[in-house]
Design a protein around this nucleic acid. Structure first.
Length: 288
DNA sequence: AAGAGGCCCTGATAGC
DNA sequence: TGCTATCAGGGCCTCT
C-alpha cells in the first residue's frame, strides 16, 4: 500500500514511540520476506539504541548507535504496529486489510523495547528489511534512486533531460523510482489529474507547461496526503491510532464511471490498464 | 539502452 | 454455500 505519504506517517509515529530507545529483544517468526532477513539481524539489533529515524522515498531508515542502519520497506501490504504496555495497540499504518487491531497471522518480526514493542505484519511479504554496516554502503544502496518530488533536483532541466524523446508513458515514469522516488500508482494518477495530463501520454511529448505542473502538483498532492494522514483504501470499521483520510480526496483513483470533480468539467473518469496496472483519468480534462 | 512482462505472495471481492 | 478468476497501493529480474 504504502507510498511516500503513508511511510512518512509511519515514520512520525515511530519517532514518537521508539526513538532513542534500546532494543532489548528481537523475535523473527518468518524471515522469508521479499529478501530473507539476514542471519545476523538479531545479533546486530540486540542491545543497540535507535538514535535516528528518517525516511527516504518509501523507505524507513533507523540508525543505531552501533553504526549499523536498518531500513524497512513495507512493500504492498506491510504494516507496523506499536504495542505499549498497558495501553491500546497503536496502529501506525493504514491498513490494506480490515482491522486496526493486531492481525492474528503474518506477524513476522517483533522488536522489543522496555515497555514498548513493534510488530511488522505483512501478508504478501513483498516488504523487506536490510541492514547496512556503515553510511557508505547505505549511500551506495540509495544511489540508484531518483530524487523525491520535494527535492530541488526534481526540476525542469532534470525532468527534460530524463524524458527527452522517451516513448514510455508518463504514468509509468512516475512509478519508476529511478526517475522520481516515492510515488506509487495512487499518487501518480492523482498528480496527473491535477496536471491535466493523460497518463498514457508519451513522456517525450510533455510540454514545458506540463513539466512545470508536474513539479508543482507532485509536491502538492503528496503534501496534502501527508497532512491528511495518508490514504487507506478498504475502509476500516473501527479507528484507533492514526488512520488516513486522503482516500476521501481522491479525484480519479478508483472513481471509474463517476463524474469528474474538476469545477466546470463534465467529463467521466475512465479506468484503463497500462503494463498490467490500472490507471484512471478524466476523458474530458485529461484528453491526450 | 529502453521498455515490456513475469514474478514474488496472500487475501478480498465479484461472478457463476 | 462454494468454487474460480481477477485484482491489489511495489519492485526486482529477464528477455527482446
Amino acid at each position: 500500500m504504502p507510498e511516500l505519504p503513508e511511510v512518512e506517517i509511519v515514520k512520525q509515529s515511530l519517532l514518537k514511540n521508539i526513538n532513542n530507545k534500546i532494543i532489548i529483544n528481537v523475535k523473527i517468526n518468518n524471515p522469508n520476506l521479499r529478501f530473507k532477513i539476514p542471519n545476523n539481524f538479531r545479533q546486530i539489533l540486540m542491545g543497540s539504541r535507535i538514535i535516528k529515524i528518517k525516511r527516504f522515498s518509501k523507505f524507513l531508515i533507523l540508525e543505531l548507535n552501533n553504526n549499523y542502519t536498518l531500513i524497512i520497506h513495507l512493500g504492498m501490504s506491510g504494516t507496523i504496529h506499536i504495542i505499549k504496555k498497558g495501553k491500546k495497540n497503536i496502529f501506525t499504518n493504514l491498513s490494506f486489510y480490515k482491522s486496526p487491531n493486531l492481525p492474528k497471522t503474518h506477524n513476522h518480526v517483533h522488536i522489543f523495547f522496555k515497555n514498548t514493542k513493534i510488530i511488522y505484519n505483512d501478508p504478501r511479504r513483498f516488504g523487506f528489511f536490510k541492514i547496512f554496516s556503515n553510511n557508505e554502503s547505505l549511500k551506495k544502496y540509495f544511489k540508484k534512486y531518483g530524487p523525491e518530488p520535494f527535492d530541488k533536483k526534481f526540476n525542469s532541466s532534470y525532468i527534460k533531460s530524463k524524458l527527452n524523446k522517451k516513448i514510455k508513458n508518463i504514468r509509468n515514469y512516475l512509478l519508476d523510482q529511478n526517475f522520481v522516488s516515492g510515488i506509487g500508482n495512487i499518487y501518480a494518477n492523482e498528480i496527473l489529474f491535477f496536471c491535466k495530463i493523460n497518463p498514457s501520454l508519451q513522456s517525450g511529448k510533455l510540454t514545458n507547461k506540463n513539466i512545470s505542473h508536474l513539479i508543482t502538483f507532485s509536491k502538492k498532492v503528496l503534501n496534502e496526503a501527508i497532512k491528511k494522514g495518508g490514504s487507506s483504501i478498504r475502509n476500516f470499521s473501527d479507528t484507533s491510532g492514526n488512520i488516513g483520510s486522503f482516500q476521501d480526496s481522491f479525484m480519479v483513483y478508483q472513481r471509474q464511471n463517476l463524474r469528474c470533480l474538476r469545477k466546470n468539467c463534465s467529463g467521466i473518469i475512465k479506468k484503463k490498464i497500462l503494463t498490467n496496472r490500472s490507471y484512471f483519468y478524466c476523458n474530458n480534462c485529461q484528453k491526450k
